[in-house]
C-alpha cells in the first residue's frame, strides 16, 4: 500500500457544545478524487476546513503528504505550530471557497500571482508566465487585466481555481464550489474541475452535485451528523447504498 496523500485519524471538532465532527477517519491516495456528500450540517465543510487548518481540531490528527498539518508531534502530544509554519504548509494545500473570495482590488492576473510571489517567493517572470498559462487553462486568458467584479460568478470561480493551482499544491480542496452560482453557470465550473481531475490532481470536493460525483469521483464519502456513514466507489455508494441514511439522502437530491 502506497503512502496516503491526505490522511485523517479520529478527528473531533466542537463549536461550543455542538459536536460537528465525531471521530472522522479518511484516507485519500495520490491522484485520487474524493467527493464528500451529505446533508447540511453534517460537518462536511468543517471537515474540509480542518485539512488546511482553517479550523483547529479538538483531537485527532491530519496529515498531508506525510506531514502533520498544523501540529508537531512531541511524544504522544501534538503541539500547534507557529503561524508562519502553518502558512507554509497551506501553500501545499489549495482551497477553493464557495464564495470565491477573490481579492476585489486586484486584477485577475494579480489574484493568481499574489501567493506564489509573496508566500513562495518565486521569481516574478516565472510566476507571470505561470499565471498566463493557468488562466488559459481555465479559459480566461482574455480577462487577465479585468477586476473580479467585472466577471460572472462562474468566471470568478474559475479564477479562484487558477489561483489555487498557482501554488502548485499537492492537493486541492473544493468547498461547495458551485453552490453560490446561478444554475446556468454551474456547468463551466464543474467542467474545469473535471479537467483537473483528469490530469491526476489529488482533490477533495464537498458538493451537492450528485451527477458530478458519479462522473468524476474515485471515492464517494457520505457524511451525516459528524460521522462518515459510508464510503466507496460511486457505483456502490450512489447506486447501491448499504445504509438507510444514504438511501434517504439520495432519494431527496436525485
Amino acid at each position: 500500500m502506497s503512502a496516503a496523500m491526505v490522511e485523517l485519524r479520529g478527528v473531533h471538532k466542537s463549536f461550543g457544545s455542538l459536536e460537528v465532527l465525531r471521530g472522522v477517519d479518511l484516507r485519500v491516495d495520490p491522484g485520487e478524487v474524493t467527493v464528500i456528500l451529505g446533508p447540511s450540517g453534517s460537518g462536511k465543510s468543517t471537515l474540509l476546513r480542518t485539512v488546511n487548518h482553517l479550523e483547529k481540531v479538538d483531537s485527532g490528527s491530519i496529515s498531508v503528504d506525510g506531514e502533520l498539518v498544523g501540529y508537531r508531534r512531541i511524544g504522544d502530544r501534538l503541539h500547534e505550530l507557529p503561524e508562519r509554519e502553518i502558512l507554509r504548509q497551506r501553500t501545499k494545500i489549495g482551497f477553493v471557497f464557495q464564495n470565491f473570495n477573490l481579492f476585489p482590488h486586484l486584477t485577475v492576473h494579480q489574484n493568481v500571482t499574489e501567493a506564489p510571489l509573496s508566500a513562495q517567493r518565486r521569481p516574478k517572470a516565472e510566476v507571470n508566465a505561470l499565471a498566463t498559462r493557468l488562466l488559459e487553462r481555465v479559459g480566461l486568458a482574455d480577462k487577465a487585466r479585468s477586476y473580479p467584479g467585472r466577471l460572472s460568478g462562474g468566471q470568478q470561480q474559475r479564477v479562484a481555481i487558477a489561483r489555487a493551482l498557482a501554488l502548485e499544491p499537492k492537493v486541492i480542496l473544493f468547498d461547495e464550489p458551485t453552490s453560490a452560482l446561478d444554475p446556468e453557470l454551474v456547468g463551466e465550473v464543474l467542467d474545469t474541475v473535471k479537467d483537473l481531475a483528469g490530469s491526476g490532481t489529488t482533490m477533495i470536493v464537498v458538493t451537492h452535485e450528485v451527477g458530478f460525483a458519479r462522473e468524476v469521483a474515485d471515492t464517494v464519502v457520505f457524511m451525516d451528523e459528524g460521522r462518515i456513514v459510508e464510503q466507496g466507489p460511486p457505483s456502490e455508494v450512489l447506486d447501491a447504498p448499504r445504509h438507510e441514511r444514504t438511501r434517504l439522502f439520495l432519494s431527496k437530491v436525485l
Binding site: 508562519r84 502558512l87 497551506r90 471557497f97 481579492f103 499574489e114 501567493a115 509573496s118 489555487a164 501554488l167
Partner: peptide, 13 residues
C-alpha cells in the same frame, strides 16, 4: 472571507 482566503493561500501575516 478575504482574510480567510489570504490565510488559505499561505500569504504572510
Amino acid at each position: 472571507g478575504q482574510r480567510e482566503a489570504a490565510a488559505a493561500l499561505g500569504i504572510p501575516r
